[in-house]
Design a protein around this nucleic acid. Structure first.
Lengths: 347, 347
DNA sequence: TTGAAAGCGCTACCAT
DNA sequence: ATGGTAGCGCTTTCAA
């Protein structure tokens, strides 16, 4: 709180960590042999290896990946950028990414954009500073500058969660538009005519924009009119879903179905119907998106679009890893597809 | 991509990223001036600064933090280790951590332990290799070797989510035991005598162990017998909560209350009661833990223990940051406390 | 206010 | 199978 100027090297006034040189000395070999043992153990003689291993535990050696990264001009880091890590939908993908990467000795450098493309640009720049070996980013909606940074970095990049028309590099996702059309088809097929839509407010959210597009396409297919009063928006919470649903109901009391671009919002709508005694799916048909756990557990169970998010993360990791191994992935634009899960809230 | 031997400075096939030297040259100053401009802009003359800034955008410079970290022997990285990032409870804390850290120019290096202390040790070692400036870790249950690694690293360490008896360094959390006692007191006070408990199977999960301890203390306080047939375990899902609840009910049909060490399990129990027509809270009183969003949104709303998880992450970040600034946090063992939220599932 | 030299701890590239 | 020598791109003294 005070002492701005005085002591400079106090914070890390610490016993130095053991370096590779220490290990080498303790094992009676040269540094490079230690280095090799770490990266290509087979090349080193059995006896030498044992001596080095002993020396390493003796001095408590933890390899300095920073120095290694500098020397090798590539790190063991993969950057992952999502809007919010505390949203289950993104966290699932990061989990899949992290698990796959960890198994191969890579670590995840995490970035949150907060759902803003400007923040995203800032965070991309910050992460790139750490010279990650690859980068995974949610969505395909980025600033021009972000795209430029990513291209210039000349590292493998994966956009996930969508199928971008103009990908930066690789991508893994599914068609949000097609998924939305599937939902509307189902509503129409079960006799619904006044179908509402709850999407996300942000202009930056390409997933929700595409679902909205699918919603409109679905209506057109069925020659149903597009009515803006059947549209509303929410943030990422159950409560917001409830609020949007309530507004919709006030504006359009004849609404007989609602497509929620998130299970949380759909759950909010279902809970509200229960409170008001609105019959589901008799009077109101409700469909969510994502197949988060709540969807299959609540009563009635939610009809929704299932997306295997951890798999998306894992595939993204594999693509990065393949490129880093100097190979080319079998496919650089992977469609993992979605699954329409019909349950109790529609019919 | 070909030419292995010919050209000298072409190790990676890519257009080289601009370096500080490039910026210096473009701006007509020495490298060190560029370096200074980045770290202490006030020291550099206005005119020089402008020239350098222009040069930086011209060449598209992204500072190499790896090189910087090596030279400065400390990085802009803070490691965060949680059991699973896709569990909302942990993701919330990481979000708070990440936001606070990002604002100060630090990035989060993420590690998942998968809930195993052995994995945790592996991941701690891996993350430490990147020489993070600090490290935040969930819980206080670690292997001896992990503790040793963390101590030897001589960086600020924060254990979060509990109040450890024997902290490695700093900590921020709350008393899981006291929270559990509070819940049992409430059950007893509302006339319950056969109180069940659903905890987590893992021996590595100290939070749940402590809640179990609180459960037993609460029973003792009320002179209620401890009955193992009122105990069951679950993994982290609503469905698991349902399953555990069902088993409990079969074993002890006279159970009149259940304390679930996670809102998800409590939700699973509530949903099951709804299916079976068991009256809540009349016949069955149910309490969760965490106050996740579902708790306040479902019908009936869940009685639970509220913990401000994002705040825990933010406080952890602040403690690390304070230490890195060479100061000592006002308190190194912070109790953020919990809040007992009584809602519709008990009474 | 700016600069020159000397590494940070490791790996790449050649030798042996 | 093992080692020597240069750097990787920056920051840290110390000087000017």
């Amino acid at each position: 709180m005070t002492g701005d100027t005085t002591i400079r090297r106090q914070p890390r006034a610490t016993a130095k960590q053991a370096s590779m040189a220490d290990v080498a000395q303790a094992a009676g070999v040269s540094m490079i042999t230690v280095s090799r043992m770490l990266r290509q153990p087979d090349v080193v003689a059995e006896a030498t290896r044992l001596r080095i291993e002993k020396a390493m535990t003796e001095v408590g050696y933890v390899p300095n990946l920073i120095a290694g990264g500098l020397a090798a001009t590539h790190t063991q880091l993969v950057a992952a950028i999502v809007p919010y890590i505390h949203h289950g939908v993104f966290a699932d993908a990061v989990q899949g990414l992290s698990d796959t990467l960890n198994a191969r000795g890579y670590c995840v450098l995490l970035g949150n954009s907060g759902g803003s493309t400007d923040n995203e640009e800032t965070i991309v720049r910050a992460l790139l500073g750490h010279r990650p070996a690859g980068l995974v980013i949610q969505g395909a909606n980025h600033t021009e500058q972000t795209r430029r940074l990513l291209t210039r970095a000349s590292i493998p990049v994966v956009e996930m969660g969508t199928l971008p028309e103009d990908p930066i590099d690789m991508s893994v996702g599914y068609s949000n538009t097609a998924a939305a059309v599937t939902v509307i088809d189902h509503f129409v097929g079960t006799g619904r005519r006044r179908i509402g839509f709850i999407g996300h407010a942000s202009q930056n959210n390409d997933r929700h924009r595409q679902r909205m597009k699918g919603y409109r396409q679905g209506l057109e297919k069925a020659s149903l009119p597009f009515d803006p009063s059947l549209l509303d928006e929410a943030e990422f919470s159950i409560a917001d879903g409830t609020a949007a649903f309530v507004r919709l109901l006030e504006r359009s009391p004849d609404m007989d179905a609602v497509f929620c671009s998130s299970d949380l919002w759909a759950a909010g709508a279902v809970f509200e119907c229960q409170r008001r005694g609105i019959a589901i799916p008799g009077r109101m048909s409700i469909c969510g998106f994502n197949d988060q756990e709540i969807a299959s557990q609540m009563n009635p169970q939610l009809t929704t679009i299932r997306v295997r998010r951890e798999e998306i993360g894992a595939i993204a990791a594999d693509m990065i890893l393949t490129r880093l191994a100097g190979e080319e992935p079998a496919s650089t634009q992977v469609d993992v597809n979605y699954e329409f899960v019909i349950r109790g809230t529609t019919g």
